[in-house]
Design a protein around this nucleic acid. Structure first.
Lengths: 222, 222
DNA sequence: CTTCATTTTGAGCAGTCGCTCAAACATGCC
DNA sequence: GGCATGTTTGAGCGACTGCTCAAAATGAAG
């Protein structure tokens, strides 16, 4: 019986092979890229027969979609407790630096980048990629909402939109790092400097803050 | 004689076919994605024989590299004079919005995204992609340097790093737009709001500015 | 018209792709 | 043991890939 038709009744053996394939897919996606990620290469990385890809997942695209969710869930679970401790912009920046350094080794963001690029022209990949990103979004939103609540001008910021911007920009810079590592580092430094500038507003006196607030309200009123 | 060996002596006919192939490559890359961009599909889009790809460019990768530079040069030339008129942050934002809307139709940024993702695992694509992006970087740097010079706290910003950040983030958000258009729009809105906040600093009095400057100097001194 | 370099063509090669399938294997129930 | 269920395997199909090549078409110089 093909597991694609019946969602229930997953034996332990089946689940084990599935996870081998998922891990193999992530490894292949990271190390060889989506161009060289095929049923055969993934199966080889997982140490199983290539026909199992279709037995357990139905198609390569569905395997990749499942791998995207699988990998993202792993990462989010890995970072969640640390993320929950973040309450200030400075802590968020520190966390971002740490995560970037770790992800550069592990290459999971590159996986999201590969899938995002692939989804542009293969609509089947889009839902899974969006879902994988949404897992990140939800976490970032929570942290941003918390951090913004403690910022004097935070009321003008949109945590949802900012979370999207942060995640998407992060993927873009990660991709850029592949062709120009030095330039990408400089981009990150510049963004951090910009964030510090925004954070500096916290130390402004009430008069100056009111001036900024006025300006913001004026431009927000479209 | 294969044009790959001799750079000079390009007849008019040869150049015409080359440009057909370059335009075909851009169209295919935009409409079908890098996954379905092959010698045959590009040649079909260009209306010529597929063997000409190898006669004129030597390989598919070199054709894509040339197409990246070709397309980017076209776009930069298209926007340069308008970019030269930009002198303030507000004008830069307006230009960004206009360019984003136009590129969303034409899809050239998506081409850069496709190549950027492809370059992660196909090192041959990396130099051309980086070069194509550098053409943008140079223009953005010039504008940013001009805009920052008129901003009170601009001395703390790095035009080179910011140009990288802007371009890379733009590509990331453009890719994200493919899987979640609404989210991408919200991301852009949030970034614009953030920029407005920075711009609001221009209206601060000298005392408040000195406070921000002090804070910046302290964190910059690592 | 002949000559000759340049450009174009269609056929073809070796390799990879997603996917299918019948047959072998494993495992627990009677 | 027989039997049924679920899992794994290797071979193979048609389609596509990058690329080569001999032959045909082109067009300017003599």
């Amino acid at each position: 019986m093909s597991p694609a038709s019946k969602a229930a009744a997953e034996t332990a053996k089946s689940q084990e092979t599935k996870e081998k394939l998922l891990a193999g897919a992530l490894r292949t996606l990271t190390e060889q890229g989506i161009a060289k990620t095929s049923a055969r290469t993934v199966a080889a990385a997982a140490g199983v027969n290539q026909a199992l890809v279709f037995y357990h997942f139905g198609s390569v695209d569905e395997l990749l979609a499942a791998a995207c969710r699988y990998g993202t869930e792993q990462r989010v679970a890995l970072y969640r407790e640390r993320l929950d401790e973040v309450t200030s912009l400075a802590e968020l920046l520190a966390f971002g630096r740490e995560m970037h350094a770790r992800e550069r080794e592990l290459g999971h963001v590159a996986v999201l980048g590969q899938l995002l690029a692939g989804a542009q022209t293969q609509p089947r990949l889009a839902p899974a990629t969006a879902a994988g990103l949404d897992l990140w979004m939800a976490e970032i939103e929570k942290v941003l909402a918390r951090v913004l609540a403690t910022t004097p001008l935070g009321e003008f910021a949109d945590p949802v939109g900012l979370a999207r911007a942060v995640a998407a920009s992060f993927v873009g810079i990660e991709l850029y790092e592949g062709v120009d590592p030095g330039g990408a580092q400089r981009a990150l430094d510049a963004l951090e400097q910009l964030t510090v500038l925004v954070a500096a507003l916290e130390e402004l006196g009430p008069v100056a803050q009111r001036a900024v607030r006025h300006r913001l309200r004026r431009t927000t009123r479209r």
